[in-house]
Design a protein around this nucleic acid. Structure first.
Lengths: 339, 339
DNA sequence: TTGCTATTCTTAAACGTTTTCGCTTGTAGT
DNA sequence: ACTACAAGCGAAAACGTTTAAGAATAGCAA
């Protein structure tokens, strides 16, 4: 491993000068600096991340907190998609991503402790249980942090425009003649309230009633539960003609229930999902869904976090960034005659 | 931040003793060691990873190389599932996972350079293009490495039993009366050859012919291409009655082609996928597929890599670990009358 | 008592950086 | 010719840890 010292020896200068030259700091003459840099390249010099981190307290590492109920956060299609774009943006700025856990050696520690141990410069949070005490602790510790679909006080966050998303879905169904629209909402996460609010508002605005039985609960990404919820809706005396699902993945359960009831999509009943991820883009039938702009969400998160890292000092008090959504029409909403 | 020095001061001992006590090294008396450890706990001491890495040349960080053609490795269902289990196993042993990239600061470097820069103890490789020169370089550099679905000379690797998987699929189709079985194979990756071999062998063993037109090529996870390949098969004078798809995801393309041809699954034509990931477990129709045991693959990979890291010295010459597969019957293979 | 060994602890160097400060020049201003 | 000042460079400390080697103490046999 070639170090600054080796380069210094070869160039006949001090280690200090080499460091300055390589980092393009003032205090070294133009030609010496160039000579040093040439030599460094020739010798295949690479800075030692550990030494740099030790000295500067900057690791250029970002912790990634992705964890859903089953502790399988990496399998969460939506968040992983966001992460992918976040990653690309961070890489471009020279940061590495580290999958956070709760061990140091053989010892179990908190996320915050792990953070400090590894000198993480910031954390990306996109798990489901935002209210876990350890996350509260992490957020309170003042470590730069950005979160998706939830806001921690004093930290930046990014959301899709959930209200508008649901509104678009409802409007579209209404335009195609649907009047009896039901909403299966997800687990109590930050975005759920907004989506429910969007549903309520959109329906009210269109002068549509929402019977109590049309608002049922499931959980995000829960196929079984969504299947049951859908079955319950279908069994109603006057069932809805269109159902909004918690998300595309969960809608698989809805589809199952509909098939089991002997109904066809969309001829007998229409459904609309949420997320619009490519995985389901080619499924049959192609679901009508609210597309979340994962690329923008990811890159915005990166931008905000970087900004936070640079200006660690001053407290942060901005509102969350809201990213526009888009309705993808698909094949699961039918035109029906107004009744 | 509380350091060894702080603890030493509080306990009235030297930094060296504190270090030894905390790491349970000999050379410190029983009661002093206990006193030191108690104090460390009380003061909330956490070792500084950077300092440790600098001193010991061990970072307890593992690089993760997940990258398919579109540079979206994190979205690859199968590899991410394996990674998830690999991660859990590595965490248990005190290792962190780092998503590798090719930048240091603003500069673009090779994977090997990034490895050295970050002092990675080992690398997990599961991307598609195993033949990329940078990966060859990485493997040749002697850094502990484990790979999935490909073997680098001198390094451990883990595979599903691809030959047996395809064989099981063919046998199952045969048992249900299929005689004209086609195979759409994936891109030229390590496993492809084995699967093709498995197909050839199984067919031969059952005394079935494989017309040249029944062996067509697509790419893994490529819906469009698989759609075309399927369409081509369906257009043959004597089309197959059962088609083996490259993987479950790509089979969505096959399903599309079949539908467009006005055929039903499985009444008119049967299909079998590969992977058996939960994402498609609830799709309709539920595909018959070869389940890869991602948990075992991931944990085996972890075990092998750890072993490699411990015994870095001696060269490694073992054969790849082969993990058994299981046929998931699903609803996409019909019983047909023997013709 | 003396000498020896084992135990407990400390000193100090080292890992590879960054960064402050001070020294030596050279140049320009008076 | 003297002073000022800036520019270029080097010495050295520091970051927090590990670890080899040495010093001090105690125990024990002769």
């Amino acid at each position: 491993m070639v170090t600054l010292k080796d380069i210094a020896k070869q160039c006949g200068v001090s280690v200090a000068s080499v460091s300055k030259a390589i980092n393009h700091m003032p205090g070294v003459g133009q030609q010496t600096a160039q000579r040093i840099r040439d030599m460094a390249r020739k010798m295949g010099y690479l800075p030692n991340a550990a030494a740099q981190a030790l000295k500067t307290n900057r690791s250029f590492n970002i912790g990634v907190l992705l964890e859903d109920d089953d502790r399988h956060g990496l399998l969460h299609h939506f968040f992983v998609s966001v992460l992918e774009h976040f990653k690309m943006a961070m890489e471009e700025m020279g940061y590495d991503l580290m999958l956070m856990n709760r061990t140091i050696g053989r010892r179990t520690v908190s996320y915050l402790e792990h953070c400090r141990h590894s000198n993480l410069d910031g954390v990306f949070v996109a798990c489901i249980d935002f209210f876990h005490p350890e996350l509260q602790e992490l957020a309170a510790a003042g470590i730069p942090l950005v979160s998706i679909d939830h806001t921690y006080k004093g930290h930046p966050s990014v959301y899709s425009d959930n209200v508008e998303g649901i509104r678009k879905a409802v409007k579209y169904a209404h335009k195609l003649g649907h009047r009896r629209i039901a909403y299966i909402s997800g687990a109590p996460a930050g975005v759920t309230a907004r989506r429910e609010e969007g549903f309520r508002m959109a329906m009210a605005q269109l002068g549509l009633e929402v019977p109590q039985e049309y608002r049922v609960f499931s959980r995000y990404r829960d196929i079984k539960l969504t299947q049951k919820a859908t079955a319950r809706l279908l069994a109603l005396p006057t069932p809805p003609t269109c159902i909004l699902m918690p998300d595309d993945y969960a809608s698989l359960g809805g589809i199952k229930a509909i098939r089991e009831a002997g109904l066809r999509i969309p001829e007998d009943i229409s459904i609309i999902g949420f997320d619009g991820l490519p995985t389901f883009e080619h499924a049959h039938p192609r679901i009508c869904t609210v597309y979340q702009d994962v690329k923008t969400i990811g890159t915005e998160a990166a931008r905000l976090l970087l900004q936070r890292i640079e200006n660690k000092a001053q407290p942060f008090e901005e509102s969350p960034v809201i990213v526009p959504v888009r309705l993808v029409k698909g094949d699961t909403v039918a035109q029906i005659a107004e009744s």
